[in-house]
């Protein structure tokens, strides 16, 4: 019996030692010398591998930063300026101040505003629906409602609203990684500056059809009438191909344009409710 124990211990122990030696040799031979700073940077990154920076994951991002030796043109959207600052401190570099961004869904063609004219059946992805037809309401620019963006979101910052059939962005969770922007086959989602107190004004439509055609499919489409362009004193609104666009760098949140929009395509977010009185005054002034 003792012999068996002895042999077992010896053979297993011997095998273990042998393997350890082999492993050690292999590890030494095939060692890849890496800049330790890459690890330093990677530690400070969120590690979601979302691809928002434009690189293949956090590791690749770290490698590229170390290779470049400066932080110009690098930004980690989920981490924001805080993370970039940390990295800058760790590497002894300067970080540009990046303004936080947020994803914005530029379509309001809800089931009510843009009633479905057809029933879609098949593979439930926007990519397929986009290749098949113009969409449930007939608007070739509008949201297809199959939720490719929601699937692409790695931060639980999106969900599909069953009542409207449109995706909703949960601002607190959104890190502006841009995954949804890439996932949307119609480029409906845009990254916009978060703005002070998350206040934003934007045109919630990207339909470039003529006003009448767009209006036929959707009550809240931008019809390209240009009223908002005239109203804006800061040249923040441009009209191109029957579609108004508000430049978030120029917009001062003066709140003049939303009321003049005949279809209500201009949306305000997180702004305090308008005082009825104020509005009346404005109206009287205009008159």
């Amino acid at each position: 019996m003792n012999e068996i124990v002895l042999y077992s211990v010896l053979s297993i122990g011997g095998l273990g030692t042998l393997m350890a030696i082999v492993l050690y040799i292999v590890a030494q031979r095939f060692k890849v010398i890496e800049d330790p700073r890459i690890d330093t940077v990677e530690e400070r990154l969120p590690g979601a591998n979302c691809g928002g920076c434009g690189y293949a994951g956090c590791r690749n991002f770290a490698e590229e930063i170390v290779k470049a030796g400066s932080l110009d043109g690098f930004n980690c959207p989920p981490g924001g300026s805080e993370t970039m600052k940390e990295i800058a401190d760790a590497l002894g570099l300067e970080a540009e101040e990046q303004e936080p961004m947020v994803a914005v869904v530029r379509c309001s063609g809800s089931l009510e505003a843009a009633p479905p004219k057809t029933r879609f059946e098949g593979l439930n992805t926007c990519a397929f629906a986009h290749s098949l037809y113009a969409g449930r309401s007939g608007c070739p620019y509008g949201c297809l409602g199959e939720g490719d963006c929601v699937v692409s979101c790695a931060f639980d910052a999106m969900y599909m609203d069953k009542d409207t059939g449109l995706p909703v962005i949960i601002e607190e969770n959104c890190v502006a990684c841009g995954a949804c922007v890439k996932a949307c086959p119609r480029d409906i989602i845009e990254l916009r500056k978060k703005g002070k107190k998350s206040r934003r004004i934007f045109v919630s439509c990207i339909n470039k059809e003529k006003g009448g055609v767009a209006r036929k499919n959707c009550k809240v489409a931008c019809i390209g009438c240009g009223k908002c362009v005239k109203e804006c004193k800061f040249d923040a609104i441009t009209l191109e191909d029957n579609l108004a666009y508000i430049d978030f760098n120029k917009c001062t949140l003066c709140r003049k344009c939303p009321p003049v929009c005949p279809t209500g395509a201009i949306h305000e977010v997180n702004l305090p409710p308008r005082k009825v009185k104020e509005k009346k005054e404005e109206d009287s002034k205009e008159a």
Binding site: G122, L123, T125, A127, F128, S131
Partner: peptide, 13 residues
């Protein structure tokens, strides 16, 4: 299974 639907998406990509 909507095999062809998926394949169409793949083909366009």
């Amino acid at each position: 299974r909507p095999l062809l639907d998926s394949i169409r998406v793949g083909k366009s990509n």
